[in-house]
Nucleic acid binder design. Structure first.
Length: 477
RNA sequence: CCGGGUGUAGCCCAGUUGGUAGGGCGCGACAUUUGGGAUGUCGAGGCCGUGGGUUCAAAUCCCGCCACUCGGACCA
């Protein structure tokens, strides 16, 4: 066996995590580069992951009463400028359309970096009475931000996302919606993506331009750096005032509605890769994997093997398992390595010996001894194995998060701990000046002010003034 | 956007003092194989990233641009 002749060689993640990540993205056939910087091609296997994310989240949104809409891709400059903070935040990364055919346009159009302004323009037209509220809209689309540096899934110039935009009659209701959607994201990430999250609020420095409050779910990657999983914003009535959106209340008075927006993007796929992957490649959580089980017939040329493998495949499919089969003439070892690279959660081997004994052999992507499963009721057994994989993945990620989150009582402690890898919990006075110093002196940013607070000190270690709350600090993607 | 590195076949790379391009892997066909990354034979595949310049002659020297990559800055 020529051990050095691998299917696709990937870089060791402990040697160069960044290169490992890029290797996995391309060699697991998730993505391809295009001729434009920061614009990527989602290959079938990568897009299928996004489709599964879409399918599950879309169902959750609809259960809660949200409706899907589609708004234009172009935003007139004058519209974008109506909300001051918002335009300031996005102006540096807007791409503009200036020509229509061969004619120069009177006004240039921004290719949407986000759609708050478009939703507001529309809401002004359709919201008149308290009876029109709430409006619970969601849009699946792509947005464009002219990023200076780009990386597959983590930072694209064009990326796919969903953006929910809701309008409510009262502040309480809008605030509740903000929390509700944050919890939808958190539950999805934990239960479906097997990614434990920290729920919390962003500091003013880190919040969305134009929002009153931004809430976030933060995750820890395998290299102990932070990735924001999703955000949910409470806007108050700021945009409503800027866009002059009003409704007549039950009190027969004019009011401005209260607004939220929330989104997750294909960046989440980058999170899955960096949370669960290993040196054999991608590891996909069963609940999101495009292929949950790959059936590999062994010694296919032998009488009856191929037929038995096909039958096994059909049994799994009939039970609702996303299963596939590899009938190619590649060697056993090649196939094993290939599906490990692609992160398929469970591999089922079926050869002459198994058929004789009426069993098949299961290998979990998460490792451990191979399992021998009776072919009788095999689908139920495979489902149990898939559940095991899902659970093991969550537990491993949770252990990584817990083992690498520490309490800190000085800037130096945060610096040393986070540079080595991890999240620091430290008390904070609430001043932005101290947050800036943390970046300068410890090289970290505030990830969030977690809902789950611990009292680990009385003062802000940066300035010595009384502390208001505990903040999670880390190095972020 | 600032600095370093890199662009030659699908991938990894070689190509000398300038003289019109090569290897391995992969790919296709056939045969033998098949319980963890097979073997042999034959074959296909290149605007040398791109645009200019120097030269009798450029993959090679010079300049611009584009892309990738590593730092940094910036960043819902």
């Amino acid at each position: 066996m020529a051990k050095d002749k691998k299917v696709e060689q990937i870089t060791d993640m402990d040697v160069d995590f960044t290169q490992w990540y890029t290797d996995v993205c391309t060699k697991a056939e998730l993505i391809d580069y295009s001729s434009i910087k920061g614009m990527f091609i989602y290959r079938p296997y990568g897009y299928a992951i996004w489709e599964n994310i879409q399918h599950i989240l879309d169902g959750e949104f609809k259960k809660l009463g949200h409706e899907n809409v589609y708004l234009p891709m172009l935003i007139p400059e004058s519209l974008l400028q109506k909300e001051k903070d918002h335009v300031e935040g996005f102006a540096p990364e807007c791409a503009w359309v200036t020509m229509g055919g061969s004619d120069k346009l009177e006004e240039r159009y921004c290719i949407r970096p986000t759609s708050e302004t478009l939703f507001c323009e529309h809401y002004k037209n359709v919201i008149h009475s308290w009876r029109d509220l709430p409006k619970l809209y969601n849009q699946w689309c792509s947005v464009l931000r002219w990023e200076k540096t780009s990386r597959p899934f983590l930072r694209h110039r064009e990326f796919l996302w969903q953006e929910g935009h809701t309008m409510h009659a009262t502040e309480e209701e809008a605030r509740a919606e903000t929390q509700r959607m944050l919890n939808v994201y958190a539950d999805f990430m934990e239960n479906v993506l097997a990614m434990p999250v920290i729920r919390g609020r962003k500091t003013d420095k880190e919040k969305f331009n134009g929002a009153e409050e931004t809430y976030t779910v933060e995750c820890m990657m395998h290299d102990k750096k932070a990735l924001q999983g999703g955000t949910s914003h409470y806007f108050g009535d700021g945009f409503a005032r800027a866009f002059d959106i009003t409704f007549t209340g039950r009190d027969n008075q004019l009011h401005h509605p209260y607004q939220t927006s929330w989104g997750v993007s294909t960046r989440m796929i980058g999170g899955i890769i960096m949370t669960h992957g290993d040196n054999s490649g991608l590891v996909l959580p069963p609940r999101i994997a495009p292929v949950q089980v790959i059936v590999i017939p062994v010694a296919m040329h032998k009488e009856g093997v191929q037929e038995a493998a096909q039958e096994l495949l059909e049994t799994l499919k009939a039970a609702g398992i996303r299963a596939d089969i590899d009938l190619s003439d590649q060697s056993m070892g090649w196939k094993a390595a290939q599906y490990e690279m692609k992160g398929v959660p469970v591999r089922l081997e079926l050869g002459p010996r198994d058929i004789e004994n009426n069993v098949c052999v299961a290998a979990k992507r998460t490792g451990g001894e191979k399992l021998t499963l009776p072919l009788e009721n095999v689908a139920e057994a495979v489902k149990a194995v898939l559940d095991d994989v899902q659970r093991e993945m969550y537990e491993k990620a949770l252990k990584n998060l817990q083992d690498n989150t520490f309490d800190a009582h000085s800037v130096e402690e945060v610096r040393d701990g986070c540079q080595k890898g991890g999240f620091a919990r430290m008390m904070w006075c609430g001043d932005e000046a101290c947050e800036v110093k943390m970046k300068e002196q410890a090289g970290v940013t505030s990830r969030c002010i977690p809902f789950e607070q611990h009292h680990i000190g009385d003062v802000c270690p940066v300035c010595g003034k009384p502390a208001k709350q505990m903040v999670i600090w880390g190095i972020a993607y």
